[in-house]
Amino acid sequence: MQNSRTLMRHADLVDRMATAQGVDLEATMMAGHLTPDALDDAILSCTGCAAPDACEHWLAAHEDGAAAPDYCRNAALLADLATRQEG
């Protein structure tokens, strides 16, 4: 089980990565494209990443948006959500 500090850090990383992809997680959930359980799964997946510090540096360097880095465990999910949000 993850501690609350770790979960909060990775929840923030997931939210920031989604924003960098042009995905508004709240709007996506309200539109029915993402369930709370799927968001929880994305956060838990993020906690297994070996590069959270690199992710924070990447996010700081890509505030205007960019495709998720290859090592992002949620890259496919966020790309899918970005496509759904556009449509």
Rank of each mutant, 00 (worst) to 15 (best):
A42I: 07
H57Y: 11
D41I: 07
A66R: 10
G48P: 01
T83G: 03
A42F: 06
A18F: 07
V14L: 11
P52Y: 06
L39S: 03
S45E: 13
D24S: 09
T19Y: 13
W58Q: 01
T35W: 13
A51Q: 15
D80R: 12
Q85A: 12
G22C: 04
D80I: 01
Q21T: 02
L59C: 06
A67C: 00
C46T: 06
P69W: 12
T47R: 03
Y71R: 05
M17R: 10
D53T: 10
P69D: 12
Y71I: 04
L34D: 06
L34K: 05
D53G: 02
S45N: 14
H33R: 11
A42D: 04
E26W: 08
G22Y: 05
A75C: 08
P36N: 08
A75Q: 12
C49G: 02
A18K: 01
G48Y: 12
V23H: 03
L81S: 00
D53C: 00
A18D: 04
A67L: 09
N74K: 00
C55A: 02
A20S: 15
A50F: 03
H33T: 02
A67H: 04
T47C: 13
V23N: 02
D37M: 11
L44D: 14
Y71P: 00
A68M: 09
A60H: 05
E63F: 00
W58G: 00
A42R: 01
T35L: 14
T47E: 05
A75E: 12
A54W: 10
E86F: 12
G22F: 08
D40H: 13
A54V: 09
A31W: 10
A75M: 09
T83F: 13
D80Y: 08
M29R: 15
A75Y: 10
L77C: 00
S45P: 02
R73G: 02
P69S: 09
A67T: 07
M29F: 09
G65E: 11
D70V: 13
T47W: 07
A31G: 09
A68Q: 08
D80Q: 11
A31H: 13
M30N: 14
T83P: 01
I43S: 00
L25K: 02
C72V: 06
A31N: 15
T35P: 11
R16F: 06
P36I: 08
P52N: 03
A27K: 15
L81K: 02
G87D: 14
S45W: 10
M17K: 02
A79M: 08
H33M: 11
D64M: 07
G32C: 14
A79W: 01
A18S: 05
A61K: 12
D53Q: 11
A67Q: 08
N74Q: 01
C55H: 02
G87Y: 14
A38Y: 03
S45F: 08
T28H: 06
L59R: 04
D37W: 08
